[in-house]
Amino acid sequence: MIPVNERIEQIRINKGITKAYMARKLGMTSMGYHHLATGRSPISTDRMQIIAEALEVDPREFLRPKLNDSFSSAEEKQNTA
């Protein structure tokens, strides 16, 4: 299973959302977000909800074993076709 922080980063990158945008949404510095994204800081359920809203996904997506096809990058979709 992929750790939650890595799942969030996969979705963020696939949606083309910047780390700076995420940091602003969470009311933290870019370094603070970096610590969340790399797993150095835990992600509370409150923050997970804010992240889900910023990424426009259901927070349960962070706990699934595989990325939903709608979050896969175009390149990944081509490689599996």
Results as ranks from 00 to 15, higher is better:
residue 21 Y to K: 12
residue 31 M to N: 09
residue 5 N to E: 07
residue 39 G to T: 07
residue 48 M to G: 13
residue 55 L to D: 04
residue 71 F to L: 13
residue 41 S to Q: 15
residue 9 E to H: 09
residue 62 F to G: 06
residue 20 A to T: 11
residue 22 M to N: 03
residue 73 S to G: 15
residue 18 T to F: 00
residue 48 M to I: 10
residue 42 P to K: 15
residue 68 N to W: 04
residue 68 N to K: 15
residue 12 R to V: 00
residue 61 E to W: 05
residue 68 N to D: 10
residue 32 G to I: 03
residue 1 M to N: 11
residue 81 A to T: 09
residue 39 G to D: 05
residue 21 Y to D: 02
residue 58 D to V: 04
residue 35 H to M: 13
residue 35 H to F: 13
residue 43 I to A: 03
residue 29 T to V: 04
residue 7 R to C: 06
residue 57 V to S: 08
residue 55 L to E: 04
residue 26 L to N: 01
residue 53 E to G: 08
residue 40 R to E: 06
residue 28 M to S: 03
residue 50 I to T: 13
residue 8 I to R: 13
residue 69 D to V: 12
residue 49 Q to E: 07
residue 2 I to D: 12
residue 80 T to Y: 06
residue 14 N to M: 03
residue 18 T to C: 00
residue 61 E to S: 07
residue 63 L to M: 14
residue 25 K to D: 01
residue 80 T to K: 15
residue 43 I to S: 03
residue 8 I to H: 14
residue 15 K to Q: 15
residue 11 I to D: 01
residue 53 E to H: 12
residue 14 N to Q: 06
residue 7 R to N: 07
residue 79 N to V: 08
residue 14 N to I: 01
residue 1 M to W: 11
residue 32 G to Y: 12
residue 63 L to I: 12
residue 3 P to Q: 04
residue 3 P to T: 05
residue 32 G to M: 09
residue 55 L to S: 07
residue 23 A to R: 12
residue 70 S to Y: 04
residue 26 L to P: 00
residue 7 R to I: 06
residue 57 V to L: 11
residue 9 E to G: 06
residue 74 A to S: 14
residue 67 L to Q: 05
residue 19 K to I: 00
residue 53 E to C: 06
residue 24 R to Y: 08
residue 5 N to M: 04
residue 2 I to P: 11
residue 81 A to V: 06
residue 31 M to C: 02
residue 57 V to D: 03
residue 69 D to A: 11
residue 71 F to C: 08
residue 71 F to G: 02
residue 25 K to N: 10
residue 27 G to D: 05
residue 51 I to F: 06
residue 60 R to S: 15
residue 4 V to M: 11
residue 66 K to L: 11
residue 56 E to C: 05
residue 71 F to K: 11
residue 81 A to G: 05
residue 52 A to L: 04
residue 38 T to S: 14
residue 53 E to I: 06
residue 35 H to E: 05
residue 43 I to W: 08
residue 27 G to S: 12
residue 32 G to R: 13
residue 37 A to G: 12
residue 49 Q to L: 08
residue 30 S to H: 07
residue 41 S to F: 14
residue 3 P to A: 02
residue 10 Q to E: 13
residue 50 I to C: 02
residue 77 K to Q: 08
residue 19 K to P: 00
residue 50 I to L: 12
residue 13 I to W: 05
residue 16 G to Y: 05
residue 51 I to L: 13
residue 78 Q to P: 00
residue 40 R to T: 02
residue 49 Q to K: 10
residue 48 M to C: 09
residue 26 L to G: 00
residue 41 S to R: 15
residue 11 I to N: 06
residue 33 Y to N: 03
residue 4 V to E: 09
residue 26 L to D: 00
residue 20 A to S: 08
residue 19 K to S: 01
residue 73 S to P: 02
residue 2 I to F: 12
residue 44 S to V: 01
residue 78 Q to A: 14
residue 55 L to Y: 08
residue 17 I to D: 02
residue 59 P to A: 13
residue 55 L to T: 09
residue 56 E to R: 12
residue 3 P to W: 05
residue 62 F to N: 12
residue 37 A to R: 13
residue 37 A to W: 03
residue 6 E to T: 11
residue 47 R to G: 00
residue 48 M to W: 10
residue 51 I to S: 04
residue 12 R to A: 01
residue 30 S to Y: 06
residue 73 S to E: 03
residue 52 A to S: 09
residue 16 G to T: 06
residue 47 R to D: 01
residue 10 Q to S: 09
residue 13 I to M: 09
